[in-house]
């Protein structure tokens, strides 16, 4: 018993650890969301919260139901696999109410360079230019149809530019880049 008495201070130190652990458990029960770990290493309820947010992108199928003329040109061109909203921005609001919500046409002098400005990091077969040398500030659509950009293709230069005025909002550079690749 005297051994235990002389080791009493060690039990006090151990007690301090146990107390700290209990405090930790209590704090943890308050600060960790209840749904954490429900599906994985994240808050389960976040899925419902994200799903309930308003949809901003309409999807290219929605665009193609009205803009069939553009769709016909685009499917034959080099940008066939670039989604409409990659360049025109999120347009679910326009799809819901086409008359009231009228998107702004993107400035091709700025937009195209986001994917096609020359960079050593891009694959060699990817079309890329020095925008200042190549166009000198002239909008790309002067020579290229953004929906079928190869000059001399069936659609011809600037053939689609008028139609594209009916759509388009802010540019989505990252999505456009991914789409172009």
């Amino acid at each position: 018993m005297s051994g235990l008495k002389d080791a009493g201070h060690l039990f006090r130190f151990a007690g301090l650890f146990v107390l700290a652990f209990l405090v930790f458990l209590v704090v943890r029960s308050y600060v960790v969301p209840k749904t954490f770990g429900q599906y994985g290493h994240y808050r389960g309820a976040s899925i419902g919260e994200i799903a309930s947010r308003p949809i901003k992108f309409a999807g290219h199928q929605t665009c193609e139901t009205c803009h069939t003329d553009i769709s016909d040109i685009k499917t034959k061109g080099a940008h066939a696999h670039v989604n409409c909203e990659a360049c025109h921005g999120a347009l679910a609001a326009h799809a819901d109410d086409p008359t009231t919500v009228t998107p702004v046409k993107p400035d091709t002098a700025v937009l195209c360079a986001q994917c096609h400005a020359a960079s050593a990091a891009k694959p060699k077969d990817f079309p890329q230019v020095d925008p200042a040398d190549h166009a000198g500030g002239v909008p790309c659509e002067t020579c290229h149809n953004p929906h079928s950009p190869v000059v001399g293709s069936d659609s011809g230069a600037s053939a689609g530019s008028d139609s594209s005025a009916s759509a388009g909002a802010g540019s989505s550079a990252k999505t456009a880049k991914g789409g172009a690749k």
Binding site: S2, G3, K5, D6, A7, G8, H9, R12, F13, L16
Partner: peptide
């Protein structure tokens, strides 16, 4: 810092 224990006997 003593945690309430002042036992500094030789055994402790």
């Amino acid at each position: 810092m003593t945690l309430g224990s002042s036992n500094i006997s030789e055994r402790a």
